[in-house]
Amino acid sequence: MTVRVLSYYPGCSLHGMSREYDESTRLVYRALGIELRELANWTCCGASAGHSLDQELAIALATRNLELAAAAGNELVAPCAACYQRLKIGEKESASPVTVLHALDVISSPETLDRLRESLQRPLSGLKIVLYYGCLLVRPPEVTGREDYEDPQSMDQVMAAVGADIRPWSFKTDCCGAGLAVARPDVVRRLSSHLAEMARQAGADCIVTACPLCQANLDTRQDKGGLPVLYFTELLACALGLEGTESWWRRHMVDPVPVLKKAGVI
């Protein structure tokens, strides 16, 4: 039963490097009765290159996609924190009638959390996790409208609803190095390795993210390696007992299968 219809902006990463985030988002949303309609002609949000080089172009690139969404008449959901941020800024700057949401916002709404609890097949109680929100999902509050930006809670609520063992840590919103990965991998390596080390010290089996850039940085730039980095939607698909998860695991640089098996998640 469809309870909600949303326009969907996957963004470039979810059609490229991070297809498992795209697939798991679609799968979980469908299972929860939320229909995603991908904007047919969406184009890149411009990411940090846009606003670094040309303010006006940056706004125009976001606004173009918002116009497509306005024509479709639904709220617009983006799973990438960087796209979400650029679209959210576009929403404000162009006084768009469209509300931009991050994929986590939809799942953490009270109604969806209830559905999640009702549909739970395999509680994740054996899995110790830390939640990594990163930067652009929460900051700056003038853009995101969030009040809990120093200690966000939405992913905590979602993962608690499926019974995961959430370990407290202080690095939920520290930066992983974002778009520096290609040109300054040394900086990303320092930041991401530190995050992975802190996650390990917090007793986590894996790090859970809600952004393809965060996932890629943490998954590929750990000095010691070995700590899997998963999308929250991948774990929700497991918790809901959905079919079609196997192909995702081999696209991770740090193989999550041993940890997931040991915790009884797969």
Binding site: H15, G16, C44, A47, L53
Partner: peptide, 19 residues
């Protein structure tokens, strides 16, 4: 390096629409 990266990124957006 980062300026080169940002330029390359926008070149790709302009040429393809999606990176």
């Amino acid at each position: 390096r980062m300026l080169a990266f940002h330029r390359a990124f926008l070149d790709d957006v302009k040429a393809r629409g999606r990176v």
